[in-house]
Structure formats: structure tokens, C-alpha cells
Computed example of a mutant assay.
Amino acid sequence: MAMRKLIKSIVIMQLLLLLHTEELFSQQDPQFTNYMYNTIVINPAYAGSRDVLSILALYRAQWVGFDGAPVTASVSAHSPLDNSNLGWGISIINDEIGPSVEQTLSADFSYKITFSNLSKLAFGFKATANLLNVDYTKLSIYDPSDPLLQNNVDNRFTPNFGAGFYWYADDYYFGVSIPNFLETKFYDDNTRSSLAKSSMDYYIMGGYVFVLSDSLQFKPAFLAKVISGSPLQTDVTANFLFFEKLTLGGAYRINGAVSALAGFQLSNAVFLGYSYDTEASNLANYNSGSHEIFLRFELFKSQAKIYSPRFF
């Protein structure tokens, strides 16, 4: 009960912070509105937490109509290992922004501890391989005589690793993770000037499921992202689940976007989701919003696993 009260308090505090935060932020890693379904890409401790083989494919087109805007596609899978406290996961992300294309392959491993109140605490480790390509000829201001733009970046490889923990039960969850411990700088071979930099990000997440009736559940959730030298980025989401089939909700990203979310359980194994973001800043004048669609497929161990008050 103490843990449930703690998670509930954290969620409420995050909602209140929205009324008082004015800071702007910049995007570094791929951004997802449906982070509560795509948790494995940012927290390795999530691996195996759904007690089934869970496969998710997601596509995001951000700031549609804005030239060079981010387009992200990801595929992930994770599952517990039978008769053990271990879990595994794998994810592939392709992220395109302007002239750059970044591909990331990650392998995740987790170990969970079950407590007497049936809550579980999982610790996770992530190993990542990253490839970066930059084609300067795609820039509208491309100048072939510029010494900084003489050579494209081709398949620049960098390794990384991360870790996290995830505490969860049927009606709440809380997690902290650092997907990339190593700060990576990409350099031009000739000038040795920095072309891109990847810094350490900290993610804090939480959610609580309120059972309002036999046919209605309400889940507020949050995701906070801390980047060294940048303002705090926070997403707050509120989803309603009707008859364990239809999910409807909304989200707000501080000084970033307002979102509408929808999902439908097509069958016991298949869930389809969609979200639309409209910018809450001056950037709204230069694009027609962001679209995100995903499909989750799960192989259930037993009928008892099909329906659960936990929808995260």
C-alpha cells in the first residue's frame, strides 16, 4: 500500500508541475508520444514485464509538412525466460532528421525480484550499436566548396550501454533509466570538428491505474527526460480503457505538444494504437502536426494473462 501511495503522489505532483513550468527544450533522442507502450527502447528493465512475448512496431512522422522533420520507425520484442526471473529484449530504431539517418540496434536483459505483496522490482542492462550517416548534399544551403561539408558521414559506428530499474504491480509502475551512459561525439575526418554529439539522458517514468468500474479504468502517467545542459522535458498522459477493448486519452508535452490518443484491442493478441500531436508553440505555424501509429502483437501463455487491470 505504501508503494501505491508513493506512485499516486508522484503522478499527481507531475500533473501539478505542468501548471508552473515555462521552460523550452530541444529534442535529442527519438521522441515517442506512445512511450507507455514503447518502454523497452528507453528502459531495459521493462524486458519481460508483460509476462508474454510482446512484439511492437511503431512509425512516427513528426512535424508533417516541415522540410527535414524527424521520421522514426522502431521494432521491438521482449519476453521473460521460462522458469526464471530473467527477461530479454531487442529493439531496432531508424531515425531520420534532415540529412542524417541514424540506426540503432539494442539488446536488453533484465532480472526481477518478486515481493510478498506481488509487486516486482526489475533491474535491466542495455547494450547498443549505433550507425550514423549524414548526406550533406541534402542540405538546402549545401556549398561544395565548404571544407566542413566535403565528406559525408558513412556508417559511423559507436557502441554504448545503459541500465535501469522498473518497479511494477497490476495497478502501478515506476522506473528510472539511462539508455546511454557514454557521451558520443562524431567528428569530421579531415577537420576533426564536431558534427554531432550524443549526451547522457535520464528517464523517470510512472503511472497508476484507477479502476473506476467493471468496464472503465483510468490511467494517468508521466515521462520525464533530463538532459545535461537542457531544461527538463515532461510528458503527462491520461488514458481511459473502456470494456478492456477501447483506449481513449490525451497527452501534454510541456511547451511542446498537445496530443490525442486512441487504441483498440483487435483480438486477444493484437492491439492497434494511434496518436496525433499538435504543437503548443510557434512551430505550429510551420507544420500540420505529428502522427504516430503502432501495432502490438502478443503471444499469451494462458487465458489468465489475456485480461489484466494493468494496461502498460
Rank of each mutant, 00 (worst) to 15 (best):
A2Y: 13
M3R: 07
I7C: 05
K8N: 00
V11C: 00
M13T: 07
T21F: 05
E22A: 02
E22C: 07
E23K: 08
F25R: 01
Q27F: 08
Q27V: 09
D29I: 07
Q31W: 10
Y37K: 13
T39I: 14
I42E: 12
I42H: 15
I42C: 10
D51K: 13
V52G: 03
A57W: 08
F66E: 00
F66N: 04
V71Y: 07
T72N: 09
S79L: 14
D82P: 08
S84G: 04
L86M: 10
G87C: 01
I90T: 11
V101G: 03
V101Q: 11
T104M: 09
N117G: 05
L118N: 15
S119Q: 05
K126C: 02
D135H: 07
I141D: 07
Y142A: 03
Y142W: 15
D146N: 13
L149E: 08
N151Q: 13
V153G: 02
N155Q: 14
N160E: 04
N160F: 09
G162A: 06
Y172T: 00
F181P: 11
L182G: 06
L182R: 09
K185M: 11
D188N: 15
T191A: 05
R192N: 15
S198E: 15
Y203C: 04
M205H: 03
G207D: 01
G207Y: 10
F218T: 08
P220L: 01
F222N: 01
T237Q: 10
A238N: 07
A238W: 05
F242H: 04
K245N: 03
L248N: 04
G250M: 11
G256V: 08
S259E: 07
A260V: 13
A262I: 09
G263Q: 14
Q265V: 12
S267Y: 05
F271S: 05
S275G: 06
E279R: 09
S281K: 03
N282F: 00
S288I: 00
E292R: 02
L295H: 02
E298S: 12
L299C: 01
P309V: 01
